[in-house]
Deep mutational scan, measured.
Amino acid sequence: MIINNLKLIREKKKISQSELAALLEVSRQTINGIEKNKYNASLQLALKIAYYLNTPLEDIFQWQ
């Protein structure tokens, strides 16, 4: 199981879903879906999320 901390980290950094989506060149709905565990981010997208949030990938998506 993967624990998804994207919403928590994004909100801590005061970045909206729309802002993050624009940086990543995806839709806001994609970010929303990832945060609600409706969609799994591809490895490429997960790495981009970590880069733009300046946060280690394993802090955003944790295996349990």
Rank of each mutant, 00 (worst) to 15 (best):
F61Y: 04
I31Q: 00
P56G: 05
A21F: 02
I3S: 10
A50E: 03
L8E: 15
E35I: 04
K7C: 09
E19A: 14
A21L: 02
K38I: 15
N32V: 14
D59G: 06
I2G: 06
I60N: 01
A41N: 02
N4K: 03
L24N: 00
L6C: 08
D59W: 07
L53K: 00
Q17H: 03
E11L: 12
L45N: 02
K14M: 12
W63V: 07
A41C: 15
N4Y: 02
K36E: 15
V26W: 03
K36H: 13
L57G: 03
V26N: 01
S42H: 06
E58W: 11
I60C: 02
Q62F: 08
L45T: 05
I3H: 08
L45E: 02
L45K: 00
I31E: 01
N32G: 08
I9H: 06
A50P: 00
A22H: 12
P56E: 07
N5W: 09
A50C: 05
L24V: 15
A50G: 04
K14W: 04
D59T: 08
A46H: 03
E35G: 03
N4L: 07
N37H: 09
I49P: 00
A46K: 11
I49K: 00
I34Y: 02
N4G: 04
L20H: 00
L43G: 06
I60R: 00
L23G: 09
E11H: 07
Y39H: 12
L8T: 15
I34L: 09
T30S: 05
R28L: 15
S16Q: 05
N37Q: 08
N4W: 04
L45R: 00
L23S: 09
E11P: 01
N32W: 08
Q29I: 09
D59C: 11
N54V: 06
A46G: 10
N40V: 15
L43I: 12
S18C: 11
Q17L: 10
L24E: 00
F61A: 02
I31K: 01
S27D: 13
L43E: 07
A46Y: 13
Q44S: 14
Y39L: 15
I15R: 02
T30N: 04
E35D: 02
L23R: 09
Y51D: 09
I31L: 12
L6A: 01
N4R: 03
I9S: 02
N32S: 15
Y39F: 14
I34H: 02
K12V: 08
T55I: 07
I2N: 06
L8R: 15
G33R: 15
E35R: 02
L47S: 10
L6H: 01
R10K: 01
K14L: 10
E58D: 12
Y51K: 10
A22R: 14
N5T: 03
L24A: 10
M1S: 09
I15E: 00
A22S: 13
L6Y: 00
I60P: 00
A41G: 05
N54I: 04
K48T: 04
N37S: 10
Y52I: 15
K38A: 11
L43K: 11
E11K: 10
L53P: 01
K48P: 00
Q17E: 04
T30D: 04
Q64Y: 09
L6I: 07
L24G: 01
F61V: 02
E58P: 08
Y39T: 11
N4C: 09
G33N: 15
F61R: 00
K7Y: 04
E25G: 15
L47H: 10
A22G: 11
K14V: 05
I3Y: 08
T55K: 03
L6T: 02
L24K: 00
F61M: 03
N4M: 04
A41F: 12
E25Q: 14
Q17A: 07
A41T: 12
G33S: 14
N40M: 14
L6V: 06
N5V: 05
L23V: 12
Q29A: 14
L8M: 13
I2F: 12
K36T: 14
S42T: 12
K48M: 09
K12S: 15
R28A: 14
I9W: 07
P56N: 08
A41H: 04
L6M: 08
L53T: 03
W63N: 06
D59S: 09
I2W: 13
I3D: 06
K12W: 07
A50R: 03
K14H: 13
I3V: 14
K7T: 07
P56L: 05
L43P: 10
N37T: 04
R10E: 02
G33E: 14
R10I: 05
S42C: 05
K38L: 13
P56Q: 06
N37K: 08
I49Y: 00
S16I: 04
S27C: 06
L20E: 00
I31W: 00
N40P: 15
V26Y: 03
Y52T: 10
Q62N: 08
N54D: 15
L45G: 00
R28D: 11
Q62P: 12
I2Y: 12
S42K: 05
W63P: 06
G33F: 13
M1D: 06
I31P: 00
E11W: 06
L57Y: 07
L24R: 00
S42R: 05
W63Y: 09
E25S: 12
L24T: 12
W63S: 06
Y51E: 11
L45Y: 01
E58G: 13
S42L: 03
N40D: 10
K7P: 03
N40G: 14
I15L: 12
K7E: 09
S18W: 11
V26R: 02
Q17M: 09
K48R: 12
A41M: 14
N40T: 15
S16M: 05
N4I: 06
E25L: 10
T55S: 08
I9Q: 04
L23E: 07
E19Q: 14
L47K: 12
F61K: 01
K7G: 07
L6Q: 02
F61N: 00
K36W: 06
A50H: 02
L57V: 13
Y51W: 11
Q44G: 13
K36S: 14
D59N: 09
I60S: 01
D59E: 14
I9P: 01
I15D: 00
N32H: 11
W63M: 07
I34G: 00
I34W: 04
L47P: 00
N54A: 12
W63G: 06
R10H: 03
E35L: 04
L53Q: 00
K38T: 12
N32R: 15
A50Y: 04
T55A: 07
E11N: 08
M1K: 11
N5P: 00
N5H: 08
K13F: 10
Y52P: 00
K13C: 12
T55M: 07
Q44C: 13
A41Y: 05
I9N: 02
L6P: 02
E58A: 12
E35Y: 02
G33Y: 13
S18V: 11
L57P: 04
L57F: 07
D59F: 09
S27W: 04
K48L: 09
K13L: 13
M1E: 06
N40C: 14
L53S: 01
A41E: 01
I34N: 00
W63C: 09
K12I: 10
S27R: 09
M1W: 08
Y51A: 09
K14I: 04
L45M: 10
I31N: 01
W63Q: 06
N54S: 11
L43V: 10
W63D: 05
N54P: 02
E25W: 05
P56K: 10
A41S: 06
T30M: 13
Q17K: 06
Y51C: 10
Y39Q: 12
N54K: 11
D59Y: 08
A22E: 11
Q29P: 06
M1I: 12
N5C: 13
E19L: 07
V26S: 02
L53E: 01
E35P: 01
M1N: 09
K38S: 10
N40H: 13
T30C: 15
A22Q: 13
Q62T: 10
Y51H: 11
Q64F: 07
A21D: 01
Q29K: 14
I31S: 01
I49A: 04
A21W: 03
S42F: 04
T30P: 00
I34A: 02
Y52F: 14
L20D: 00
E19C: 07
I31V: 12
E11Y: 05
E58Q: 11
L43W: 13
L20P: 00
G33A: 15
A21P: 00
N4T: 03
L6E: 01
Q17Y: 03
Q64A: 14
L45I: 09
I60L: 12
T55L: 05
G33W: 13
Q64D: 14
K36C: 10
Q62Y: 09
L20T: 00
I60E: 01
R10G: 03
S18G: 13
S16V: 04
L57A: 05
A22T: 12
Q29R: 14
N32D: 15
I9R: 01
Q62I: 11
R10M: 07
L43Y: 14
L20G: 00
S16C: 06
K36N: 15
T30I: 15
L43R: 11
Q44P: 11
N54H: 09
L53W: 03
Q62H: 09
K12L: 14
Y51Q: 09
L47E: 12
R28W: 14
S16T: 13
I2K: 08
L8A: 15
Q64C: 10
